[in-house]
């Protein structure tokens, strides 16, 4: 697994160099973390359309922080759910959640620092 490295300059460039918006995004990611984790787990137990949607949401969140690897994990899950291939979804969900936690950890360190 590729370790997550925060590419703040790339993210800031996308946000037009606005540190305020960047800080807000970090806060929101951390605030919404539990909700998003829970939503993904609930979707795993539910239908594939819900799983596709939640994977899509997490893909967006990770892409916002320029996490190409994480976004790709989420995208694979999203596509598999879309195509109804949910047999090994559990494993992918776990991987994705681990990635989300990793990103959160880095972001937490950022706000603490």
């Amino acid at each position: 697994m590729n370790p997550f490295v925060l590419d703040k300059p790339a993210i800031l460039e996308r946000l037009g160099g606005d540190e305020g918006i960047f800080a807000m995004m970090v806060d929101m990611f951390l605030t919404e973390l539990d909700n998003n984790r829970q939503a993904l787990l609930t979707a795993l137990a539910g239908d594939s359309a819900a799983l596709q949607r939640e994977a899509h949401t997490i893909k967006g969140l990770l892409a916002t922080f320029s996490d190409g690897f994480g976004a790709e994990l989420a995208q694979t899950l999203e596509y598999q759910a879309k195509n109804g291939q949910v047999d090994d979804a559990r494993g992918r969900v776990d991987m994705l959640l681990a990635r989300v936690d990793e990103v959160a950890e880095v972001l937490r360190g950022l706000s603490a620092g």
């Binding site: 606005d18 918006i21 929101m28 919404e32 949401t57 916002t64």
Partner: peptide, 17 residues
């Protein structure tokens, strides 16, 4: 947008305009 974080981001960008 159903995602709170996206709503907040877009709102901030719109206000910047």
């Amino acid at each position: 947008d159903d995602s709170e974080i996206n709503l907040t981001l877009i709102r901030a960008l719109v206000l910047k305009l």
